[in-house]
Amino acid sequence: MSGVTLLGLVAAACTTASFVPQVLKAWRSGSSADLSLGMYGLFTLGIVLWLAYGLLIRDTPIIVANVVTLVLVLSILVHILRFGKPRPPAA
């Protein structure tokens, strides 16, 4: 493995891992009311496009990072769609 590829993998690991605390917090607390559906939707589109780009140029760090990030971001999107809006108190 080249030094450039290793650098890319380390950078990818750092940026991808940054989503783990958000995913854990949302699922543990059961709340995602403060998260933006628009932001995560647009970010997901960007991740899908980066993944396509990585596949086309066969770049391992880009592919690995974006597959893992896509799973994490989709987890957040599912949570926002299921639990995002606070429910009004029962009457």
Rank of each mutant, 00 (worst) to 15 (best):
I76A: 04
R58L: 13
G84L: 04
R58T: 11
D34L: 09
S31N: 13
T15A: 07
A91S: 08
M1A: 14
L70R: 03
I80Y: 06
L9M: 13
S32I: 14
T16A: 12
T69M: 12
L56C: 11
R87N: 14
I47S: 08
W50F: 08
R58Q: 10
K25Y: 00
L56Y: 10
W27Q: 00
A11T: 11
V67I: 13
Y53K: 03
A11K: 12
K25L: 01
D34T: 12
L81V: 15
I80E: 02
V4Q: 13
T5F: 10
S75L: 11
D34A: 15
G84K: 08
S32K: 09
P89W: 09
M1I: 04
F83P: 00
L37M: 06
R82I: 03
K25W: 01
G8H: 01
V48F: 10
I62T: 12
P21Q: 03
V71L: 09
D59V: 03
F83K: 04
A65T: 04
V64P: 03
F83Q: 10
S75R: 08
A13I: 01
G30R: 03
V48A: 15
T15Q: 03
W50C: 11
M39Y: 10
L35I: 12
L70A: 13
G41F: 12
L7C: 06
P86N: 14
G54Q: 07
F83C: 08
A65N: 04
T44R: 09
L24A: 07
A91F: 05
Q22H: 03
K25S: 01
P89N: 09
G41C: 11
S75Y: 04
L37Q: 14
L49Y: 06
G46K: 04
F83L: 05
L7A: 15
F19T: 02
A13N: 05
A13Y: 02
A12G: 15
V68W: 01
L35T: 05
W50K: 03
T44S: 15
T60F: 13
G54A: 07
A13L: 08
A12K: 14
D59T: 08
I57V: 15
S29W: 01
T5E: 12
T5P: 07
V48R: 05
L45G: 13
S32D: 07
L37K: 07
V48D: 00
F43K: 11
P21Y: 00
A26D: 02
G46S: 09
M39C: 04
R58I: 07
G84P: 01
P86C: 02
I76L: 15
R58K: 12
A90I: 14
L77T: 11
C14Y: 09
L7P: 04
